[in-house]
Amino acid sequence: MEAESSRAADPDSHHHHETPPPASRRRLVGTLLLTAGYAVIEIGGGLWSGSLALLSDAGHMLTDAAALGIALYAQRVAHRPASAHHSYGYARAEILGALLNSLFMLALVGWITVEALMRLFSPGKVDGIGVMAIAAIGLLVNLGAAWLLSGDSHNMNSRAALLHVLGDLLASVAAIVAGAVIWLTGWQPIDPLLSLLVAGLILRSTWTLVRQSSHMLLEGVPAHVDLAALSERLAAQTGVVAVHDLHVWHIGPEQVALSAHLAINEPEQWPRLLATLQAMLAKDYAIDHVTLQPNWPLPPPGHPATPRPDGVER
Rank of each mutant, 00 (worst) to 15 (best):
A3H: 08
R7C: 06
D12N: 08
T19Q: 14
P22W: 06
A23D: 08
A23R: 05
S24A: 15
L28F: 06
L28Y: 03
L33K: 15
L34D: 00
T35V: 13
V40T: 03
E42N: 12
G46A: 13
L47M: 13
L52W: 00
L52K: 01
L54G: 03
S56M: 07
A58V: 11
H60R: 05
H60G: 04
A65F: 06
A66F: 15
A66P: 15
A67F: 01
L68K: 06
L68C: 11
L68A: 11
I70S: 00
A74G: 03
Q75V: 09
R76G: 15
H79Q: 14
R80D: 13
P81H: 05
Y90G: 02
A91P: 12
M105L: 11
W111G: 02
I112C: 00
T113A: 10
V114A: 09
E115A: 15
P123S: 09
G124N: 14
G124C: 14
D127H: 08
I129S: 15
G130C: 08
G130F: 04
I134P: 00
I137M: 10
G138V: 05
L139G: 04
L140P: 11
V141P: 00
L143W: 11
A145V: 09
W147A: 14
L148V: 14
G151L: 11
G151P: 09
D152V: 10
S153V: 15
H154C: 05
N155P: 07
M156H: 04
N157F: 11
R159Y: 12
G167S: 10
L169N: 00
L170D: 01
S172I: 01
V173I: 13
A175V: 01
A178W: 01
G179K: 00
G179R: 00
A180R: 04
V181G: 07
W183L: 11
L184G: 06
Q188R: 14
P189K: 08
P189A: 11
D191T: 04
P192Q: 03
L193V: 05
L194K: 02
L194S: 05
I202M: 00
L203A: 10
S205A: 15
L209S: 02
R211G: 07
M216C: 06
G220K: 07
L227S: 12
L227A: 12
A228V: 11
Q237A: 06
A242E: 11
V243G: 01
H244V: 07
L246M: 07
V248G: 03
W249L: 15
I251R: 04
Q255Y: 05
V256C: 04
A257L: 03
S259T: 10
A260C: 13
H261Q: 10
L262S: 02
A263F: 14
P267I: 04
P267D: 07
P267V: 04
L273Q: 09
M280V: 08
M280I: 08
A286V: 12
I287Q: 03
L292R: 01
N295R: 06
L298M: 09
P299T: 10
P299G: 12
H303Q: 04
R308I: 09
E313H: 06
E313I: 10
E313D: 08
R314G: 12
R314N: 12
